[in-house]
């Protein structure tokens, strides 16, 4: 398996106006329970990490970034597009990788699952075929093309989930705890893969070392951003605070 190769084909990202993801006074409540209170920030960095205790609002924040969750108050803009009204375009721009790959893989075999997203986007069949072959090869899944997805290892499943997003050619990818369910070796592999993506990424993680080379790390606390800065400042602040 090869993990280290830098993806070539995916670097030809479409050139559009990229102004970043902007949150303006965002509040989010589930029913009458408010879990995010007045978050305002703009993400333009290539590598953004999100850390914080369980229940602090990280997943809700992550889901706001591609419109899976809409703000109860305030606005989320992706390259100027409002997630509340331009959901389709926003989701094309921002891919999402979930913690549990089993919930994200919806077709019985590997290649079929990879084709799902681009098929939905209306990508022509021969182009889908090309993209699928490309990611299968890149993520060491070429020999598993027609295998049932459920026979893959946990690490392979997470790579399949990531590949299933990459074939949709998003400009940014949000990861919600992508390594939490993996053993150490597989967590490292997935971390390497994320590190080498040409896309901008936002990564929610409890694996703090995954955020080492990141440009910016947000620390969530009770639905607020309690700290925001380079990992060299925010990560030690967070660990000290956790005691």
């Amino acid at each position: 398996m090869r993990w280290g190769r830098r993806p070539a084909a995916l670097e030809e990202a479409p050139s559009v106006e990229r102004t970043g993801i902007e949150l303006r006074d965002v509040v989010h409540s589930y029913g009458d329970r408010t879990v995010l209170t007045g978050v305002s920030l703009t993400l333009t960095e290539r590598r953004v990490g999100v850390i914080g205790a369980n229940g602090s609002g990280k997943s809700t924040f992550a889901r706001l970034l591609n419109g899976l969750v809409l703000p109860t108050e305030g606005t989320v803009l992706v390259d100027g597009l409002d997630t509340a009204t331009r959901a389709r375009e926003v989701r094309r721009r921002v891919g999402f990788v979930f913690q549990d790959p089993d919930a994200q893989i919806v077709h019985p075999t590997v290649a079929e699952d990879l084709a799902f997203g681009p098929t939905n986007q209306g990508v022509p069949a021969d182009e889908i075929e090309r993209r699928v072959a490309d990611v299968l090869d890149r993520y060491g899944l070429a020999g598993h093309r027609d295998h049932p997805a459920h026979l893959l290892s946990g690490g392979q499943k997470q790579l399949l989930a990531i590949a299933g997003v990459l074939v949709m050619r998003p400009e940014r990818i949000v990861f919600d705890e992508p390594t939490t369910l993996l053993d150490l070796a597989n967590a490292r592999r997935v971390a390497r893969v994320i590190e080498e993506l040409p896309q901008d990424v936002v990564v929610v993680s409890h694996h703090l070392e995954l955020l080492d080379g990141f440009d910016r790390v947000l620390v969530f606390e009770d639905g607020r951003v309690a700290a925001d800065g380079p990992p060299a400042e925010t990560v030690p602040w967070y660990t000290a605070r956790m005691g």
């Binding site: 891919g95 919806v106 084709a115 997203g117 098929t119 939905n120 986007q121 949709m168």
Partner: peptide, 18 residues
């Protein structure tokens, strides 16, 4: 959520599985 994120609803009505 994953179906949403992967564009299940974006599919043109006449699409066929690739």
């Amino acid at each position: 959520e994953a179906l949403d994120a992967r564009g299940a609803d974006d599919a043109p009505a006449r699409r066929r599985l690739a």
